[in-house]
Design a protein around this nucleic acid. Sequence first.
DNA 1: AATACAATTTTTGAATTCAAAATCGTGGAA
DNA 2: TTCCACGATTTTGAATTCAAAAATTGTATT
Lengths: 227, 227
Amino acid sequence: MLHEEVVSRLRDILLEGEVPPGARIPERELCLKLKISRTPLREALKVLAAEGLVLLLPHRGSRAARLTDKDVHDLFEVCQGLEALAGELACERVTDAQLQEIAEAHAAMVEHYRDGDLTQYYRRNRQIHEAIVAAACNPVLSGLYDSVTARIRRARYLTPMTPPRWATAIREHEAILNALERRDGMGLAHILRAHLRHKREEIIKAGFAEIDSGRGLAGHESAAAPV
Amino acid sequence: MLHEEVVSRLRDILLEGEVPPGARIPERELCLKLKISRTPLREALKVLAAEGLVLLLPHRGSRAARLTDKDVHDLFEVCQGLEALAGELACERVTDAQLQEIAEAHAAMVEHYRDGDLTQYYRRNRQIHEAIVAAACNPVLSGLYDSVTARIRRARYLTPMTPPRWATAIREHEAILNALERRDGMGLAHILRAHLRHKREEIIKAGFAEIDSGRGLAGHESAAAPV
DNA sequence: AATACAATTTTTGAATTCAAAATCGTGGAA
DNA sequence: TTCCACGATTTTGAATTCAAAAATTGTATT
């Protein structure tokens, strides 16, 4: 198995919550599961620690990172900044083909909204935001965006969506598409900032806190379901 | 030696250009130099590869990352976005003490400008930008900023500074401090974007290209001085 | 019965070892 | 002379091994 693949599979295991946030990472088991020895596994752990997904306690093993309210808040703030930047750049660089792809994804998303299909809605939503970042044509930005969204994924796509919030999101997305089609960089950046700020407020209000109630690692081993 | 220390020292070695960009990383030598075995060194290499400082060629060793013009451009673009975001947030959160520290650094920087002391000027310049990011009070943002600035450091602080550009930079910094003191988030974000865009244009124009002339890795081993 | 201490076990971190892959060097053929 | 092929050497990637640190267990003493 290639190095990148180990990192990738381990990342998935953490993001899926197979190892719950805050729980100790069972080196032994993962070695067996991935059919590798400890050396490559530990290399992957260090990489993921640098990404912020894993917490390394010297001489005390590693744990799946636990997101505090503050972490979620910070991640959203940065995500918002990156998306706003991406929007600005995308307006300068987006190709007609990309624009069309985004428009189609948008239409599909609105359709899912009408059907009340939240899962498919989220899928399209994510596709749109990723397409905007891709259209910015900046691999550094894409990389940071991927890393931030990976860390925040659970919070972003697993919080309850209220009807009014959903309606607002759709309206905002109309404005996003519109600004992009007009190549209005400043306008788009502004909308994206507001868009994400709304989402953030919602998530914070929804009490994402339950994932982490603030006590230290010494607490329960959190064998319970992650989210 | 602690894991983080190995990563840190190796990062310095790369940033200092002790291993020139594009050059192969001599595992053996570094093991001797750092007095560690290959296992922890390779762990550090993977971490730095994830950071973008090292290029891993499967079965073909690792090399110090080589920045293309496009890379520098992309890094600056993202750096600009992060600083703008930091500026906005800093306006909401900066403490009086931090503000004072920034003002003092600014005064010192202007002094170095008058003296024509570029090295000290850069030092203060960097201190100011870092202080603004710190004032944003967002560890995620700080982390990304550190990583981006680390990658771009050589390009940022080793390009020739022309007198008119220097004068412009000083004027822009006056505006930055002013906006920060007025807690004018939007204004500061705008200024910071412009500030960095100017620097970027300067660097691109200055022909940072010489560091990488576009050919592949197969080319010369680049034993020459890094910058 | 509870707590403190010590011995044992487990786990972590790193060096060594080992197999596979790539590079280098030599020799032969065109 | 130049190009290609084949074998030796080096280097890489990963498993194993080893030492040190921490957790656990058991025991003794208060």
